[in-house]
């Protein structure tokens, strides 16, 4: 039930916002960006939060999806829907091929390998000018049409992206609470024990890596059609880092945390614009401070704070939970 409750609250918020604030730039444009970032963060969280595998190159898959769609629709006049599928296929193959050697690594090594992969992809996007348009990127990407309905306005995109977000939250939460999801999390807890329970850890790692890349590729394609223009800047190493920060900020292994992280990191630059030249400095400073003082994530920290306030002001202090009477000695 808890699973459904969160989803309903999220749906209500997403529906209520445009009703409460009609024709509001923040709601439609920034809201769409938040939803898109949230889906990316959720997909990365599958890999990082649940399976415990760091990736500093997630933006690469987002970019491969976006560029596949852009290239196929502008240079080969493919149908946008078909190009989304093709992008996912390409991403899936690339992710599958690199998953095994990359996921053999752990800790800093894994971080470096995924970082290296991400940078290689972004360099290719800049250098392969014949296909990618080089640093200038690609423009005139046709809009997406669904069953004869062309998604064109900011509000349309808000609706589409919100729907995608709700769908992904639902699917991911179902998955996490299943046999496969537990296998993922077991991997994070103890690889040896997971293997001894009959879990093929190598293939679980590969699968989650590919799944997370596929989701990123899918929203990458949507992003390309939404923006109608893409350039390598949107898929750089820095965006990978931003995605990782969203996940960690929200609190690892929490889908709603990832959404929260996406919300904060998408709004932050919008708010920091007032700092003008100081924007970069303030952003870096905030990033550092949040990680130093709330390493388990802002979402968890806020949750704790709210429940503490709630207890202090609205309820008498709770009695200390009674001991279960079994005082086991810990060796």
């Amino acid at each position: 039930m808890k699973r459904i409750k969160g989803l309903i609250i999220l749906a209500i918020i997403l529906i209520a916002l445009p009703i409460l604030f009609p024709n509001n730039y923040f709601i439609t444009v920034v809201g769409t960006a938040v939803a898109l970032h949230a889906v990316l963060a959720i997909s990365l969280n599958l890999l990082m939060g649940y399976a415990g595998q760091i990736s500093l190159g997630h933006a690469a898959f987002f970019g491969i999806g976006a560029y596949s769609s852009a290239i196929l629709t502008t240079q080969h006049q493919w149908n946008p829907l078909l190009s989304i599928g093709a992008g996912m296929l390409i991403t899936g193959i690339i992710a599958f091929v690199i998953a095994r050697p990359i996921l053999k690594l752990k800790g800093h090594y894994l971080a470096m390998a995924t970082l290296g992969f991400g940078i290689i992809v972004s360099i290719i996007l800049v250098q392969a000018g014949n296909f990618t348009g080089g640093p200038d990127g690609l423009s005139d990407i046709p809009p997406l049409a669904l069953f004869g309905w062309t998604i064109s306005s900011d509000f349309h995109w808000y609706v589409v992206m919100s729907t995608v977000l709700l769908l992904i939250v639902w699917l991911v939460n179902n998955l996490i609470d299943s046999r496969s999801g537990r296998a993922l999390r077991a991997l994070h807890g103890s690889e040896v024990a997971a293997e001894m329970m009959g879990i093929n850890t190598t293939s679980v790692k590969t699968n989650v890596f590919v799944l997370s890349a596929l989701i990123a590729s899918f929203v990458g394609s949507l992003f390309a059609h939404q923006q109608a223009f893409i350039s390598p800047d949107s898929f750089s190493f820095f965006f990978s880092i931003e995605l990782v920060t969203m996940v960690v900020l929200g609190g690892l292994a929490s889908t709603y945390g990832a959404i929260f992280g996406a919300l904060v990191l998408t709004f932050l630059p919008e708010l920091l614009v007032v700092f003008e030249d100081y924007e970069v400095m303030v952003f870096g400073g905030i990033l550092m401070l949040m990680m130093i003082f709330m390493p388990q994530g802002l979402f968890v920290a806020l949750e704790n704070l709210i429940s503490r306030l709630y207890r202090n002001y609205f309820n008498p202090p709770l009695p200390v939970p009674a001991s279960d009477g079994e005082n086991h000695d810990v060796a």
């Binding site: 760091i54 990782v244 030249d277 100081y278 400095m281 400073g285 990033l287």
Partner: peptide
């Protein structure tokens, strides 16, 4: 954790870059 320290040092690098920019 490894991820947290990575983000801290990345935050520091962005911060220092921002200082240099200013």
């Amino acid at each position: 954790s490894v991820v947290t320290t990575i983000i801290i040092t990345i935050g520091a690098s962005i911060f220092l870059r921002g200082v240099a920019l200013v």
